[in-house]
Design a protein around this nucleic acid. Sequence first.
DNA 1: CGCGCGATTGAGTAATTTCAAATCTAGTGG
DNA 2: CCACTAGATTTGAAATTACTCAATCGCGCG
Lengths: 195, 195
Amino acid sequence: MKNKFRQHIEKTTSLTDEEFDFVFSHFKRKQIDKKQCIIKKGKPVENVYWVLKGLMKASYLDLNGKQHIIQFAMEDWWITDYQAFINKEKATIDVSCLETSEVLVLSFSDREKMCSESQKMANFFRIKSNASNAALQKRVLTLLSSNSEERYNELLSEHPKLLQRVPKHLIASYLGLSRETLSRLSVKKRIDVKI
Amino acid sequence: MKNKFRQHIEKTTSLTDEEFDFVFSHFKRKQIDKKQCIIKKGKPVENVYWVLKGLMKASYLDLNGKQHIIQFAMEDWWITDYQAFINKEKATIDVSCLETSEVLVLSFSDREKMCSESQKMANFFRIKSNASNAALQKRVLTLLSSNSEERYNELLSEHPKLLQRVPKHLIASYLGLSRETLSRLSVKKRIDVKI
DNA sequence: CGCGCGATTGAGTAATTTCAAATCTAGTGG
DNA sequence: CCACTAGATTTGAAATTACTCAATCGCGCG
């Protein structure tokens, strides 16, 4: 497990054994039950989470009571309400657990401490933040330029596992379409494939 | 002008006179003509730009030749193709000038140098990156949860000046709707106001 | 076995796009 | 200063896309 996490970090930034032990000492391991909520709208956001095993979602309830999915997080992904986490504000979104999960937990103060003592880790989080920016920008472009079918196909080709693991109505929320439309798209897809 | 820029930085991070002079020495001032393109798809992205005066846009041409607006940048805003700038990749978007503009130009290497020598400026750019994340996330939520009229009204209330300065068809591209729909919304708005 | 949630299907409706044409406007050259 | 043009905006009508509502289906779990 420690090894898996180290691999994750070292995809971006190589570390000596001592450096990794220093980094790792700031994290706590935690099990999260299915349906459990780790960040609730209106509450402080203490931590950022790295998913070792399982599946989480970050979602927003709009004024009409509709749920919108901001992101999923599978193995190897980070998740929190960044806006609230960084600025010590109250959460504006919920983060909860779709499958029983194991995560590594990092508190705000531990993250700050780690970054001030390790240039490499400050750099790591900077790169992660930039990658997140790029991903969000790509998502904006997709929402601006693609219709439902194109968005569905894009997700299908980029994250086929999500489609299998996540209830369809949540996939619909993530793509910005109704569950009925998504259902029709998946039927169409199956027929298209046969032909 | 120097003063305006200093105010911008100090909204986030306070600096001594010496620190500011150090920071400022890394920037070059430049005038950009209307319609001039400062970042072209496929070319390297050397710089990030801070708009002192004028108006720029970052846009993407999709496979059907439709233009989509990723962001505008008015006075006091930063703009570049961050993905390409940070990772030294070729640009995937275009950045061009809607009004004759004056900008401060910062190259990648000067930015790195500045950040490695000044903890404060590293912090400044980290905060900017986080703010950008938050803004993009908000935009995703808006695109997921609001219809055209709500998106139009949101832009109208948050950036009324943009509506006045930017050609309407570009506003439509930014909001993800056709120029005809935007035109109908603005007519409706004028009638609603009268009633 | 039956309940309940998620997924599917059908029908009708609403929102938005597309295409085509008419106006309007700012900038240019004479 | 005026006429002219290219680009931008508006308008109408038809076509398309996606949504909503309602009903049904299917499956896992107690």
